[in-house]
Lab assay of single mutants.
Amino acid sequence: MTTFKLIINGKTLKGEITIEAVDAAEAEKIFKQYANDNGIDGEWTYDDATKTDTVTE
Results as ranks from 00 to 15, higher is better:
M1Y: 10
M1R: 13
M1I: 10
M1K: 14
T2N: 07
T2S: 08
T2G: 03
T2F: 14
T2Y: 14
T2H: 13
T2L: 14
T3R: 12
T3Y: 10
T3H: 07
T3Q: 11
F4R: 05
F4H: 08
F4C: 14
F4Q: 11
K5Q: 02
K5A: 01
K5E: 07
K5F: 13
L6A: 01
L6P: 03
L6W: 11
L6N: 00
L6F: 15
L6R: 00
I7L: 03
I7E: 02
I7R: 02
I7Q: 02
I7F: 03
I7P: 00
I8E: 01
I8W: 14
I8M: 03
I8Y: 05
I8F: 08
I8C: 12
I8G: 00
N9Q: 08
N9P: 02
N9V: 12
N9E: 04
N9D: 08
N9S: 04
N9M: 11
N9T: 05
G10M: 13
G10D: 02
G10V: 11
K11S: 10
K11R: 11
T12E: 09
T12G: 07
T12P: 01
L13R: 05
L13A: 04
L13P: 02
L13Y: 14
L13H: 10
K14L: 09
K14Y: 13
K14N: 05
G15E: 09
G15V: 15
G15D: 07
E16L: 10
E16S: 10
E16H: 09
E16I: 13
E16D: 06
E16F: 14
E16W: 14
E16M: 13
E16N: 04
I17P: 00
I17F: 12
I17R: 00
I17Q: 01
I17H: 01
I17L: 11
I17C: 15
T18L: 10
T18W: 12
T18D: 01
I19E: 00
I19L: 06
I19T: 02
I19R: 01
E20L: 14
E20F: 14
E20R: 13
E20V: 15
A21V: 10
A21K: 05
A21E: 02
A21W: 14
V22D: 02
V22K: 12
V22A: 09
V22E: 04
D23T: 09
D23Q: 02
D23A: 02
D23E: 02
D23P: 04
D23V: 10
D23L: 05
D23W: 14
A24E: 06
A24S: 04
A24G: 05
A24R: 15
A24P: 06
A24F: 14
A25L: 10
A25V: 12
A25D: 08
A25M: 11
A25W: 10
E26V: 04
E26D: 06
E26K: 01
A27C: 13
A27T: 00
A27H: 00
A27E: 00
E28T: 09
E28D: 08
E28F: 14
E28V: 10
K29D: 02
K29G: 04
K29P: 00
I30H: 02
I30D: 00
I30N: 01
I30L: 06
I30Q: 02
I30G: 00
I30V: 07
F31W: 07
F31G: 00
F31R: 00
F31V: 01
F31D: 00
F31C: 08
K32Y: 05
K32E: 02
K32L: 08
Q33T: 06
Q33C: 14
Q33M: 09
Q33K: 12
Y34W: 15
Y34A: 01
Y34D: 01
Y34L: 08
A35G: 01
A35D: 05
N36G: 06
N36V: 13
N36K: 15
N36F: 14
N36T: 12
N36M: 14
D37S: 07
D37H: 05
D37A: 13
D37M: 13
D37Q: 08
D37G: 06
N38F: 14
N38C: 15
N38M: 15
N38P: 02
G39Q: 04
G39N: 09
G39A: 04
G39L: 06
I40Y: 03
I40D: 01
I40G: 01
I40Q: 01
I40M: 02
D41T: 11
D41N: 13
D41R: 11
D41K: 11
D41Y: 14
G42R: 03
G42S: 04
G42K: 01
G42C: 15
G42N: 04
G42Q: 03
E43A: 08
E43I: 13
E43C: 14
E43N: 09
E43F: 12
E43K: 07
W44I: 03
W44G: 02
W44L: 02
W44M: 01
W44E: 01
W44C: 07
W44S: 02
W44R: 01
W44N: 02
W44H: 01
T45L: 11
T45M: 04
T45G: 05
T45F: 12
T45P: 03
Y46R: 07
Y46T: 04
Y46P: 02
D47P: 04
D48S: 10
D48T: 10
A49L: 12
A49E: 11
A49M: 11
A49S: 10
T50V: 04
T50W: 09
T50H: 07
T50K: 06
K51N: 12
K51Q: 11
K51M: 10
T52L: 03
T52R: 10
T52Q: 06
T52S: 04
D53W: 15
D53M: 15
D53A: 15
D53P: 09
D53E: 15
T54P: 04
T54S: 04
T54M: 09
T54F: 09
T54E: 04
T54G: 04
V55K: 04
V55C: 11
V55W: 07
V55Y: 06
V55R: 07
T56S: 03
T56N: 07
T56H: 07
T56Y: 05
T56E: 06
T56R: 07
E57M: 07
E57W: 03
E57F: 03
E57K: 04
E57T: 08
E57I: 13
E57L: 11
